[in-house]
Amino acid sequence: MSGDEVALSSDEDVVRARHVTRRLAVEAGLRLVDQTKLVTAVSELARNTVIHGGGGVLTAGLVHDGPRTGVRVTCQDEGPGIADLDRAFQDGYTTGNGLGLGFGGARRLVHDFDVRTAPGQGTTITVVRWG
């Protein structure tokens, strides 16, 4: 996978993460709806990395599977990790002052969603949306 990298530590970085994702989604030939879904999911995950994960890094690139092309995005941080994943996925659950929708919503907006996390071990989330 070719790699685009964005350091995530501020609001502006989240904007940059969206731009990189949008560009790749266009390159992968995703339709406008699919672009929007992926970009929105990445916006949520990248902001979680900034707010809950204490900052981290995003990597993004195209992926191929036979005739299909997709965009894969990974958000990684060395933050506190997520102790109770089921709760984190629950709509309305937040430890901050958000709506508590981003994490579960992001999962519904992509095709593949993979989480690696443990308390004190940081969080790595990889998502793919196919064209």
Binding site: V33, T36, K37, T40, D91, L101, G105, R108, L109
Partner: peptide
């Protein structure tokens, strides 16, 4: 596209 995304987000 925004309407569809909003629904999936659960907003």
């Amino acid at each position: 596209q925004i309407a569809q995304t909003i629904v999936h987000l659960g907003l």
